[in-house]
């Protein structure tokens, strides 16, 4: 058993009612331990509180109860030790691709020469050589998300948080992006928390899939994925993969039906 880096301790979140309505219980008290170098995907139906949980870990939202510990220290707010990639495109439009990737390094006060070196290495890793001086608007959605991943990684965070980063991409691009991200993880062994509602994506990337229940969200199943690394997209057609997929599809189906009020 490797060491715990992130510990989610009875974290819950209740949003106050909108215009006198009933408060929304987005997240039931939730527990999760993330070991160093884990790649955890969080799978759940829409509205089950995945983003809420991730935002709490990022420090962008405060839990109503419980706490989150990173390396034993309670999280009080956002910080460079937790890199985040959002579902929406959040590159800074006034900065070029290279400047976007360098953003966190500049905030940290990394000297220019070293900054350029790191930026060059990550531009290479996400396959954006030749686009350093483009502005985000001049890039496709997939390229923008690759830049966002590079921007988060360049900061060398303890843990990388991704909230459906490929949700807006077409299937082919999505597959390529999964392989790219997995390749980086296999080489650098980052700790990753990845939110998705795509079952194949969840299995393909994960060393552990955490399934969340319909709202109010809580963790319903925690399934290790023992598929060997390095993984190739052809793995998606193996019997092991298919049986995991069948198992998770069943878990999710029940939840989705509950979310829609079907019994």
């Amino acid at each position: 058993m490797s060491s715990t880096i992130l510990q989610i301790d009875n974290v819950s979140r209740v949003f106050p009612g909108v215009r006198g309505g009933a408060p929304v219980r987005a997240l039931e008290p939730t527990n999760l331990q993330v070991a160093k170098n884990d790649f955890i995907t969080i799978l759940g139906p829409s509205g089950c509180g995945k983003s809420t949980l991730l935002r709490i870990v990022a420090g962008l939202d405060r839990p109503s109860g419980g706490r989150v510990l990173l390396n034993g220290r309670e999280i009080k707010g956002p910080g460079a030790d937790r890199g985040m990639v959002f579902q929406s495109y959040t590159l800074f439009p006034w900065l070029t691709i290279a400047e976007n990737i360098a953003y966190g390094l500049r905030e940290k006060g990394v000297p220019k020469a070293q900054r350029q070196e790191i930026v060059a290495s990550y531009t290479e890793k996400v396959g954006l050589r030749g686009f350093e001086n483009h502005y985000p608007k001049q890039l496709s959605g997939g390229m923008q998300q690759r830049t966002a991943i590079a921007r988060a990684l360049a900061n060398d965070p303890e843990i990388l948080l991704l909230d459906e980063p490929f949700g807006a991409l077409d299937n082919q691009t999505r597959g390529l992006m999964q392989e790219l991200l997995l390749g980086i993880w296999e080489r650098e062994r980052k700790t990753v928390l990845f939110v998705t509602h795509d079952i194949e994506e969840a299995i393909f990337l994960a060393s552990r899939v955490v399934v969340m229940s319909a709202r109010p969200g809580r963790i319903k199943a925690d399934i290790p994925v023992e598929l060997p690394h390095p993984r190739h997209y052809t793995m998606k057609t193996t019997p092991e993969f298919s049986s995991l997929k069948a198992q998770l599809t069943e878990e999710i189906r029940v939840e989705a039906m509950q979310a829609e009020g079907v019994h």
């Binding site: 990022a58 420090g59 962008l60 707010g77 956002p78 910080g79 460079a80 937790r82 890199g83 985040m84 959002f86 929406s88 959040t90 800074f92 439009p93 006034w94 900065l95 953003y103 966190g104 500049r106 905030e107 940290k108 921007r151 988060a152 900061n155 948080l161």
Partner: peptide, 27 residues
Amino acid sequence: TRRDLVEAAYTLGSSDRGVVRRVLIPA
């Protein structure tokens, strides 16, 4: 100013002043 850009800056290690100087003003 787009809130998600401000949030992105915070997760990249910006301080409150950094957000004003490097997000709110250039944006």
